[in-house]
Amino acid sequence: MANKKVKVGIVGLGRQGYQHAENLALRVPNCELIAVCSVVEKEVKEVQEKWGIPYGYADYDEMLENRELEAIFIASPSGFHYEQIEKALEAGFHVFSEKPLGLYLEEAEKVEKAVSRHPDKVFMLGFMRRYDRSYADAKRMIDSGEIGEPVLIRCYGLDPAGKLDSFLKFARDNYSGGLFLDMAIHDLDLARWYLQAEPEEVWAIGGSYARPEFAELGDAETGAAMVRFSGNRIGIFVAGRNCAHGYHIETEIIGTNGTLRIGTVPERNQVMIFNETGAVKKCTGGFLERFEQSYLSEAEEFINCILENRKPSVNVRDGVESTRLGYACKKSFETGKLVRVKS
């Protein structure tokens, strides 16, 4: 088993897909990336030449006909996930997919049914924060009772202001699902994971302040949601796309006997600059930098699950329930009303 290599094909070679491909090709033990797929021919050729990948495709269905493959890694735009997951499972492959399961709750629920039809296959969803060392350590501390019963979670998810133009272009060209589904979904997943509770009610507000174009798209530049979870537990979620100091991901869990905080200062490293502006620490510039280790760790876990014939702890149900809560936040934001989360 130690020498066994899982043969993987990846679809999607954009910014995030390229990072996944590089990990699969160079850094994940017992993995062999043998096929890449993208509608952008230049991306396929570049990756093939750079890492010696034997198979390149512009057509996803054609890649699924390659019987050398054992697993499919999906890093394509969100609108393709539902169909690509279902096709890969039906074709007999193990599947890893980036979030979300689909752009609509109905699609996520269909993916769950497709996964249930193939219990012999490993399916894993890319909630990478669960594989970040700090977030995983916080989970262990909560489960061991170090802060007593967790009763409140507060999450900040703030993207760099310097990325506003590129995101607006993305939002115009691709339906992202909006602020709460596209950005806050990771925090919504963390809340369920840490609190071990399901959402019951949500109230969400938001607006477009620096860039009114978000309002024109029916979206928010900055938003907040308050969620009542089962057991009267509380969730407070802030998401924004206009963070002046960089990429700021912060989580606080308050318990009956203590509090945990993760990422209060989004520092890039341990270097501090002392100059005329004071003592300054540089912040991380984006999600690929902040979660570099967790992207690698989740890919390693996917491959290990295949080799060890076991299922990952993050599953399709986590994707469905986080999507359900994300849509409830979206509905509350759009209507200005308190929304009951349907289970």
Score class of each variant (00 low, 15 high):
residue 8 V to W: 06
residue 9 G to W: 02
residue 10 I to T: 09
residue 11 V to T: 13
residue 21 A to Q: 12
residue 25 A to K: 11
residue 26 L to K: 15
residue 28 V to E: 10
residue 36 V to N: 08
residue 41 E to K: 13
residue 46 E to F: 04
residue 53 I to Q: 09
residue 53 I to T: 07
residue 54 P to C: 00
residue 55 Y to N: 15
residue 56 G to Y: 05
residue 57 Y to R: 10
residue 57 Y to W: 04
residue 59 D to E: 14
residue 59 D to S: 08
residue 59 D to C: 12
residue 66 N to W: 02
residue 67 R to A: 08
residue 80 F to Q: 11
residue 83 E to H: 06
residue 87 K to R: 13
residue 93 F to K: 07
residue 98 E to M: 02
residue 100 P to M: 00
residue 103 L to P: 10
residue 112 E to H: 04
residue 113 K to P: 08
residue 121 K to E: 12
residue 123 F to A: 07
residue 123 F to G: 09
residue 126 G to W: 01
residue 129 R to K: 15
residue 135 Y to K: 07
residue 136 A to C: 05
residue 137 D to K: 14
residue 142 I to F: 02
residue 143 D to Q: 12
residue 152 L to E: 14
residue 152 L to D: 07
residue 163 K to A: 13
residue 167 F to N: 15
residue 170 F to A: 13
residue 170 F to I: 12
residue 173 D to C: 04
residue 174 N to C: 09
residue 184 A to W: 00
residue 199 P to Q: 06
residue 200 E to L: 12
residue 205 I to S: 11
residue 212 P to I: 03
residue 213 E to W: 04
residue 214 F to G: 08
residue 227 V to D: 05
residue 227 V to Y: 00
residue 229 F to I: 04
residue 236 I to D: 08
residue 239 A to H: 06
residue 247 Y to P: 06
residue 247 Y to I: 00
residue 249 I to N: 09
residue 250 E to H: 03
residue 251 T to E: 00
residue 251 T to P: 00
residue 253 I to H: 04
residue 258 G to I: 02
residue 261 R to K: 13
residue 263 G to W: 00
residue 272 M to N: 08
residue 272 M to C: 11
residue 274 F to G: 03
residue 278 G to P: 14
residue 286 G to R: 01
residue 287 F to G: 11
residue 295 Y to V: 05
residue 301 E to H: 02
residue 303 I to P: 12
residue 307 L to Y: 03
residue 308 E to N: 13
residue 311 K to Y: 06
residue 313 S to G: 06
residue 314 V to F: 03
residue 316 V to C: 08
residue 316 V to F: 02
residue 321 E to V: 11
residue 326 G to H: 05
residue 332 S to C: 06
residue 335 T to K: 08
residue 341 V to P: 07
residue 343 S to P: 09
residue 343 S to W: 09
